[in-house]
Amino acid sequence: MYLQQLVNGLTLGSTYALIALGYTMVYGIIQLINFAHGEVYMIGAFVGLIMVAVYKVNFFLAMLAAMAVCVPLAVLIERVAYRPLRRSTRLAPLISAIGVSIFLQTLVTLMEGPNPKGFPQVIEDTVYVFGPVQFSKVQVIILVLAALLMLLLQYTVKYTRMGKAMRATSEDYETASLMGINVNRVISFTFALGAALAAAGGVLVGMYFNSIYPLMGVTVGLKSFCAAVLGGIGSIPGAVLGGMFLGVAEVFGVAVGFDTYRDAIAFGLLILVLLFKPTGLLGMPIQRKV
């Protein structure tokens, strides 16, 4: 019973983690809470839905298509709404991000209507049983794909040229640009990576919960951001840990009867963690240098 909840929690958690990664990478580089990230995820889900329902492509192609739409979208958002504001007060890009959010939500509502849509069943209802635990096929796909994507990300950040430039930029923006790193390209790349993961997350969540609607990015986006902060913002393993932690906590919270408090669990946990460890679980302590 508990083991089963754990599996469900980890499945939910890995979708949070996929989205949280986008928040954490962007924050790590330009210290911006990219509130429009939840909308990128939502659009990913819709593109996946359209591909599967209208063009009848298989699920993997749908996911690739979602990425193909979300990546340029995220890069465009950065160019238009954030880049001009890089040197202004911290709140300006935040407000701009909220503007983008509202814009995209309304746009999709206009195109697709406000009501939730079901996802056609593209994965058959097979259930695998391991002792006391059952995995549905969708769960297996989510867990495996999420793990693969995160490994791929880890590889990209650790070993590719661009990944190294990303790490250098997030370490020290000024020095990185002095060292000849093209910071603008690094930032675009970071948005692209985050968007690709969010798009995948959108399609996976659509399949799992079978409900897609224009405001779906709002709560999930916020919770994923919580996951990122929980794990220690700027830290990639932190985002994964935070996402998993949140997913499991939420599933267990609901299981023990806190279902009406579901959306408060994430925030409650976040506040608790921050009060005791102000930079999150895996975050580095900040030593203010005077």
């Binding site: 238009v80 202004s88 701009s96 983008v100 509202i102 939500q105």
Partner: peptide, 14 residues
């Protein structure tokens, strides 16, 4: 309406 409102927010900030 809200589409323009969102775009306006971005424009004002930029």
């Amino acid at each position: 309406r809200m589409l323009i409102y969102g775009a306006l927010m971005v424009a004002m900030m930029v």
